[in-house]
């Protein structure tokens, strides 16, 4: 419950539910956020390094279920329907025109 309140929303076109697990210091996470904004897609993100220890633990467990390697960014589409690990530009761009 606790870390949920720390999730930030960036408004845009609602194509799929996009959730990012990120670090505020990570350059690939920043690139991912910038690309999603450029594509004008709505997304939620959680900067894990800014959480309290307790919240971090909880969010980490959640993130681990999608990506056991816990690498950043971890991009979760529609609550786990698809998981993109890292700044995979092509795959991220594809999220924009995927309405199939």
């Amino acid at each position: 419950m606790s870390y949920q309140s720390q999730i930030k929303n960036v408004p845009g076109k609602k194509v799929k539910k996009i959730m990012l697990y990120t670090l505020s210091t990570c350059i690939w996470c920043r690139k991912t956020k910038a690309l999603l904004s450029e594509l004008n897609l709505e997304y939620d993100f959680l900067d894990m390094d800014l959480l309290s220890e307790e919240d971090q633990e909880e969010a980490y467990t959640e993130m681990e279920s999608y990506n056991p390697h816990l690498s950043f960014p971890t991009i979760v589409i529609n609550r786990g329907e698809q998981v993109i690990k890292g700044f995979e530009e092509e795959m991220i761009r594809h999220l924009g025109h995927k309405n199939d």
Binding site: S24, T25, M48, E53, F72
Partner: peptide
């Protein structure tokens, strides 16, 4: 980012990984 982590943890932890502190 390395300097932010230095400030935060006292050492320059990798900016793209979550440090334990």
């Amino acid at each position: 980012s390395l300097l932010i982590n230095d400030d935060r943890y006292g050492y320059q932890a990798c900016p793209c990984r979550l440090a334990s502190g």
